[in-house]
Structure formats: C-alpha cells, structure tokens
Design a protein around this nucleic acid. Sequence first.
DNA 1: GACTTATCGTGAATTTATTCACAGAAAGAG
DNA 2: CTCTTTCTGTGAATAAATTCACGATAAGTC
Lengths: 200, 200
Amino acid sequence: MLPTNTAERLCKIYGILQMIKKDSGYVSSKELASMMGTTDFTIRKDISALNLVSFGRRGYHIGELSSVLGKALQLSRPYRSCIVGLGRLGSALLDYESFRGDGFDIVAGFDSNINKIERIRTQIAVYPVSELDQVVKNKSIEVGIIAVPHNSAQEVATTLVKSGVKGILNFSPAQIKVPSEVVLYNMDFTSALRFVVSQI
Amino acid sequence: MLPTNTAERLCKIYGILQMIKKDSGYVSSKELASMMGTTDFTIRKDISALNLVSFGRRGYHIGELSSVLGKALQLSRPYRSCIVGLGRLGSALLDYESFRGDGFDIVAGFDSNINKIERIRTQIAVYPVSELDQVVKNKSIEVGIIAVPHNSAQEVATTLVKSGVKGILNFSPAQIKVPSEVVLYNMDFTSALRFVVSQI
DNA sequence: GACTTATCGTGAATTTATTCACAGAAAGAG
DNA sequence: CTCTTTCTGTGAATAAATTCACGATAAGTC
C-alpha cells in the first residue's frame, strides 16, 4: 500500500491534473511542485511509487499520469456516497459543485428533521435519518459524509458502518470510532483554525 | 517551535478538553488516545513537548493542561477572523456554532455579489469584496477564511496577505500561494474524499 | 506505613518521510 | 549527428515521527 503522505499528495496531484487537463499535454514535476507547495523531488518520489513506465521528455504526459493515478488511487470509477445531516453545512455539501462529475455520486441525503427534508430543494433524494440503514443497503452506498452535530456523530457513524459503508468523511468535531477496516478521515474546522493560529 | 504533527494533535487535544471540561477533573493519556485514535505514548510524548510541570497521579488535570495548551498554541486570546465568499459553504461557516465562543471572533463576511449581501440574515457584518482590503485593515483581522470558487481564490488570498492577515484557512480546491511568513492550511473536500476512497 | 495499581516522562530503538545528488533519457538547435 | 538543455528516476543520506521499554511518582487500600 502507498505511504499515507504519498497517497495524500497523489490525490492532490490527481485533482490538479483534472483542472489543467485542457491545457498543454505535459506537466513537469517542478510545475506540479510549485502548484502544490512542495518540491520537485517529492513529487517525483511520490510518482515513482506508482512505477509509471513513461519517462524523461518534457515532464509527465497529463493524460497518462492521470489514468495511472486513477487506477492506483481507485478513482477510476464513481463512488456512491451519501450525506448525513442537512444543516447549513450538509446542504452546502449536497450541492457542492466540485463533487459533481468528479468521481463522486452523491445519491442520498439524510436528516432527522422531517420538516427540513420537505423544504430542501435539490436533485438528490433526501430521507429521514431513520431510514439510513435501509437506504444505504439498498443503494449500495460505499462512502458516508457526516455533517451532523457532534453529539449524534458517533451514532450515525455506527449505523453507517453496520450498513456496510467502507469509508467515512467526518465533518463533525466529534472524535468518532470505527473498526479498523473502515477508512475514516476527519475534517474538523475548529481544529484546523486552531492549528492555523498556533502556527502564526 | 513545536513539530507539525505534534501541534496538530495538541490542537485536537485542546478541542477535546474544551468538550469534556464539565466532566471529572482528570484525564489520562490513555483516555485521550482512545478518543483521538492514537496511542497513549504518542499523547504523552506530545504533551511532554510542553514541559508541563505536573505529573503522575490520575492523569492530567484538565484545567491545568488546558491552560498550558492554550498558552503553547496561542489560543488563550480570541482571533479576529473573516470569511470571504458567502455561497452555501461560506454562509454555513458564518454561523458555524463551533467557532462561536471557541476562541474565534468572526467579525466580517465578504462577497462579490451585492444582492447576496443584502439577502443574508446574520449578526455578522457583511461587505462587498471590493472593501476587503480596507475592512481587514480597519478591523485588524488576523485570519482569513477563503470560501470562494477556485478561480478567484488566489486573488482573494493575495489581497488578504497584502492587508495584513497572518493566517489563511482555504476551503477552495485551488492551490493558492502565500509568502512563507503567512500560515496556510488547506481544507480541500474533494481531495479528502479522494483520499478516503484511495484508502478503501 | 507498606503494598498495589495506575500513570507519567523520556532516552533509545525503530520506522517512516524528506531531501539530496547524480546518472540517464529525450527533445530541440545548429 | 552531436551538443546542450531539461527532465525523470532512484539509491543514499538526513531528518522527523513513532514506538517501545522502563524507572519514577502519586493515590488508593488495608
């Protein structure tokens, strides 16, 4: 398996490639590095972990690198995802343009507040959170995005895991626990802001 | 200065302490570890970087640890912050409860769309983005939160830096560049989702 | 007060990540 | 076709982070 930091950077690279795809056909490690705020040898080292066959001309062929990365990171097919918690943040995520057409199928939203569900205007099907388990199973949802308040985050996570979700992106400030075979990534805004301040 | 990873974990610890403050007066490295998904010795090592004078009874005194952390991470005073871009995400952040009363003063919001500014219902003062420079200076804002689309992120960042902001939390998927004395932290949702999937 | 238990602090060992330096490969120029 | 330039790929060197092992310290118990 890819080293954690390498995998994280490769995801960024993949994102950049998607954005510049229209531009000229090649990109160098130096260009990527400057776009990402790292160094060229870090990029090369990371990419070398993919044992990409192509080599030394005017950099990496964007299409080729993109497809190799897609395979290595398992991004070549869309993943069925759902968002739990349709408060301000959750509904913002529901319609987040960057997800759409970018390899992620947000196929459902959930909220505990029935009234809220009726009010929401979106293309995506929304359900009461009581149907979470059932809908996740029926739609074979693989990734859950948690955007509920911190006091119900663990409960939601537990249900998601039981229903067969394989990865969770947690936007709540709660520190949730999942079995080791489930991938968990935390995006805690408050913690991030604190980190920024601590480094000032 | 604290090692990066240590600082990041200490921020998490600080957050946890704020949440459990009401509970019993002590917390052990093992308890913290299990709440954060690390090990007890990592916690102890991290905390040892603070050269905390207290030691070995029933764990750390929550109040004491919290105050030492607050000092070390510079979190003991509130930081004046602003949010640029009041789309769905930006306005969600404007009213994010966790920021409020948690050491962050969101004192202004900005958007390029005048109509949107008039529509927004919030306690916080909102301005057209053309006044960004002026307002940041006048209100001595120290931290900028970027929630604009990726094609204007760099421009906003440049203005923020010019106006004297010392830290930036970037929610746009753009890879922005700032001078090395300015702290930058990226929260790229798409990249995070990709990372989750890549680890599945 | 002695014994037991729980916990910390930290130097040393290990693992992981980053950085460097340079050989080798292609493209462009003349 | 040869020279020059620009890149890549990667082994070796450094640096950083994590893990381990264990002595030491307090609190609780009897």
